[in-house]
Design a protein around this nucleic acid. Sequence first.
DNA 1: ATCGACCGATACCCTGCTGATATGGATCAT
DNA 2: ATGATCCATATCAGCAGGGTATCGGTCGAT
Lengths: 294, 294
Amino acid sequence: MDHLETRQLRYFVAVAEEQHFGRAAHRLGMAQPPLSRAIRDLERHLGVQLLVRTSRRVALTPAGQVLLDEARIALDAVATAGNRTRHAGQEVPALRLALKADHDAGLLPRILDAYDVLPVELLLGGYGEQLAALHDGRADVALLTTPFDERGIDSEPLVTGPRLVAMAASDPLAARTGLRLVDLTGRLLPYGTPAEKGLPTPPFDHHEPLDHSQIFSLIEVGAAVWFLPVWLAERFDRPGIAYRPVEGLEPATLTVAWPARSRLAAVATFVRTVQQIAGDTATYDNPAPVGHPV
Amino acid sequence: MDHLETRQLRYFVAVAEEQHFGRAAHRLGMAQPPLSRAIRDLERHLGVQLLVRTSRRVALTPAGQVLLDEARIALDAVATAGNRTRHAGQEVPALRLALKADHDAGLLPRILDAYDVLPVELLLGGYGEQLAALHDGRADVALLTTPFDERGIDSEPLVTGPRLVAMAASDPLAARTGLRLVDLTGRLLPYGTPAEKGLPTPPFDHHEPLDHSQIFSLIEVGAAVWFLPVWLAERFDRPGIAYRPVEGLEPATLTVAWPARSRLAAVATFVRTVQQIAGDTATYDNPAPVGHPV
DNA sequence: ATCGACCGATACCCTGCTGATATGGATCAT
DNA sequence: ATGATCCATATCAGCAGGGTATCGGTCGAT
């Protein structure tokens, strides 16, 4: 019984995710035949069939599903080992804070001002990258908006506030009060929080995430609407965009999060500092609609 | 930035643990020069110095210590992926129960009788192997005696009972009452629970763990004494060995434990079954000394 | 029913990684 | 001073792992 190598796991994950040897090989930057051989060797090595190949499609066996889950975890742990080590080798120690631009509820300047244990290195990333950075050791701590996948993550809530719908100021719905989720059916961007999975999305073919400028451009021309926390709305309070409360829309909570395994004193101090600042901050208990009138 | 391979991590862990390239190479079944080269490449790859080599000794840098910790976790995760997958590929699903022989407090027959969700596969192992089996995916569930390292492990207590000291029946101390920990200074075997680390051990040079027969042979001739839970004493109630309570010796708790990540329904059912059986069992609340008189 | 497109497997070759041996250089004990 | 110890370097060999060409089976279109 020889040892598993991460290369084998990476190959398998690629094939399992793509359900296609050719695409997986392309993604891995290699040709298809050696990939087929590598998977066959992996199956031989484990003594288990992982994939069912018909010449039309590739499907996972139950054992393959187990390996897909476990391999993701294992690859994450290996990446973490590398990232944490690289960081530990830097001459200047720093606290690496992952956050999404504009999703700090205005706390960031005060946080950076108040926290003086270590220099703070900011990792700005798009949707979902904060969690990934915590998991693979690129970040020590992150600011996240609920909901998120809490497995392996410890967190403390900081600020809770309603989420609003952003729409074109000229939109007929902007004149109404008492908006409900169903009123927005079919117009919701699939980016941002995936909380309203059930609702259909507009007929865009963007499979790439949009940045804020792109999103607000779409909203401004009435092509879509979007849910966002009130503190983000405050950052983009501009003519042409209206923000309205929506009945039944879950509020958002800004939280500070860190890897459950982490025992860094610098992180503990940071969390206390941030909680302190958040506690001193005005809450969003009683939201009034913001945005310019039509 | 290329990817880390488990081979590199295994090599590094070996060197870090042995603090010696030659010994590490021997342990890995290879020659020393390629190992040196592999570690050098790893350091280059990470851009971090991991080891300080003098020609007399090898020491870890802080970054090296980080990598040692993280690499152990990562290697464990990779091994887990392999073990869980292998198991998932078996045609006959089974619940794999890890335990140490004779440490089941007599519950095992009733457990096996009552649990009929899946066939139960027993993994008998020595001290510490139960935890390792849970961590690397060879076992789904285990019976453990406190204390143990609970990181990554969920557990439920089953039975609590005092620990006793086992000594030769002819030992002068066996005639005394009210034994205390200090009375046994220097005579305690270092195997079994490591709870009494401070106390010196007898002058044996066994670095291999002893099995029960070997331990009781040593005890019987008066060469050593040993602490053990009362349910283990009951299994080895024989002439020549006396069991006595010791003041201040922490009681032991037999627990059922499983990986914190586990969400197997079969494990949940097993735990409930075992708790049920343990609840029906007489406790050891009021221990009387057992063992033959001098 | 036939043909072509698609897709994974096989056959075969070649490069470079990984491990082995020989040796150098530095440090410490005697 | 000298030998022992231990890690690094130099060099070579074998094979693991990647590439190209091609086969065979399946499905959809005509």
